[in-house]
Design a protein around this nucleic acid. Structure first.
Lengths: 339, 339
DNA sequence: GGCTGGCACTCCACAACGACGAGTGCCAGT
DNA sequence: ACTGGCACTCGTCGTTGTGGAGTGCCAGCC
């Protein structure tokens, strides 16, 4: 049995009302608030069908209806158009992001902006090292046998590691090592690095071989293989605001999940540039069923260097949230393209 | 009227019982669980006095007693000895912190460790730039008119800023600028930087004057004056665990306050190496009355480079928390001293 | 004077109860 | 295919009552 237009309209109305009132919506209230052109009784029949099909449900007999995850899914896929942003929102985005000092600052501002606009929990992944190129590698002697290795990616991201050298290395040798490494790696993508680093070790003059091996090891191990991905979080207070999550039962596991960077990366480290919406049970993470997650990739132009998004209750304003996340991602992408 | 030993003992017992059971404690239960050597009636009289003095209170008539902020204060100052750490905790600290890759990683592991051991919200300030020296300043050309300036502090902290130069600057000039800047600033404390940077501008050769001014401006503005202090947070899920905070009323403002870096810095950016305990209303921040905060400074040896601590309900295990925070701070201090 | 046992009193927590009302499903009628 | 009517369900909310923990006070005891 398929759903005719009016039934879809009823579903849309239920979703909209429930999202705004947060209370089960009954047939009478529905016809009052929307021009459906039919009586409550008719709506009730439609509701019965929608319930059979699994799009809505009753919390208990004699209560109004509430959309199911499946209902939200249909709503998002078929029944909603992306809301255009209000000029106020556009201005907020610009005002918030201009004047960012460095990459850290951009990410920081972005995640707070997202949290504020959507009034939900926001997550932004730092530009992924995997998808970055090396802009420059700097060696800073810390002592005679220790060197700080600083890698600067083209996205502006900076990573550093301390390296213990096997022997004392004179200053000139450090300069030479720096020159060699940059010659080989600067401008290259990080994913292409391993063979190049290998080549560095093989080609280097015998006198520099030992320190070069130490450097190469750290480079490979901690920057390439264990390519450290990071995320930033904001707006957890909004979880308490919604009133959807109860303190003992659902809020704590969510907060716990949000503290696991691995989980956040899995969810928000978007690979494709497109928008993705996970609703309730569609979620991979057990503890985050009951929440919905809207994510997108971002980056300069069409390239994706990382993901961002928001997390909130399944009863969220999907069109609005999607529009905001998309707009912010685009704006940040443009920002990255400039630098 | 002063409090004799037994009354103090009663107060200690009340605090201990209330912290562990989280329920108002009555006179009968008290004599059963502690060897006070007197009858409930006597304890009741003592309680009446303690209540007059403001150390305990009754939530309502015919309920047991609960310590007031003042009671906790007396307990912390006079009635408790710092608990020695269990060997298991010592081992946990070591196991957790060895193998940290870089400063970011140290801070990251530390804050999670603190949250886990105390089962509360943990905060760790990054080593303050104010108290750091410059280890090295690196200039990385990004385009012909843009340079990334990377400052590496002796604590291992790395900060970077993008600088727009007024004109194209040839590669050799960048090298020269780098040399000049490092010559002047390397090894100097950041607080001493402003006159040195000023001198750099005045002494530089006329051809390099314009780019040097641009660099100096950024150095002064964003690294010295607006010396960016950062903090890291973990364990917010523990707020939900305690069951002390209700969802609508108290939890949300706390989460909001915790997202304000300014507030966290004010609270946890300890200046002195000593332990500090703020209990309930003693707190400067309105929204954090109702919580207690245990902080300490940390750093290599006796120097303080930053603060760390935990935040939890006023009914917290003060001796245990204080011991843990102190131990972790010392361990991290040692770690910093090594590098 | 300080401690104790006894006792009347207070007041919260909790369960039971009932009225209310929103909302439903179904059916007969148009 | 839609509508109005109607009986029914069931959660919400306010009321009421009871049980029990805990207190304050007092008279008596050491």
């Amino acid at each position: 049995m398929s759903l005719d237009d009016r039934k879809l309209e009823v579903l849309r109305a239920i979703v909209q009302d429930y999202v705004s009132t947060q209370e089960p919506v009954g047939s009478k209230a529905l016809v009052e608030r929307h021009q459906l052109g039919v009586s409550p009784a008719t709506v009730r029949n439609d509701m019965a069908v929608l319930e059979d099909e699994g799009y809505i449900r009753q919390p208990h007999t004699s209560a109004g209806r509430v959309p199911t995850d499946r209902g939200y899914r249909l709503f998002v896929d078929k029944l909603s158009r992306v809301k255009p942003l209000s000029p106020a929102e556009r201005r907020a985005i610009e005002r918030f992001l201009v004047g960012a000092l460095d990459l850290d600052d951009v990410v920081h501002r972005t995640v707070r902006l997202l949290a504020q606009l959507t009034r939900q929990v926001a997550v932004v992944q730092y530009p992924s090292l995997t998808r970055s190129s090396v802009r420059h590698l700097e060696l800073v002697p810390v002592s005679t046998t220790r060197v700080l290795i600083v890698m600067i990616a083209d996205t502006g991201r900076v990573e550093q590691r301390l390296v213990d050298l096997p022997d004392q290395v004179p200053h000139d040798d450090v300069t030479e090592l720096r020159r060699l490494i940059n010659e080989k790696l600067a401008g290259r993508r990080l994913v292409d690095a391993p063979p190049l680093v290998q080549a560095l070790v093989e080609e280097v003059a015998p006198t520099l071989r030992a320190p070069m091996i130490a450097l190469a090891t750290v480079l490979l191990e901690t920057l390439v293989e264990r390519r450290e991905e990071r995320v930033m979080l904001a707006g957890t207070a909004n979880l308490a605001r919604t009133g959807v999550f109860d303190l003992q039962g659902s809020l704590r596991p969510i907060l716990e999940a949000l503290e696991e960077e691995v989980i956040l990366l899995k969810l928000f480290g978007a690979v494709e540039p497109s928008m993705r919406v996970r609703i309730g049970d569609e979620n991979e993470i057990e503890d985050l069923r009951g929440t919905s997650i809207v994510t997108t990739g971002y980056g300069p132009g069409a390239t994706v260097v990382g993901g961002m998004g928001v997390l909130g209750p399944t009863r969220m304003d999907y069109p609005g949230t999607i529009a905001t996340v998309r707009a912010v991602a685009r704006y940040v992408g443009d920002l990255l393209a400039q630098s």
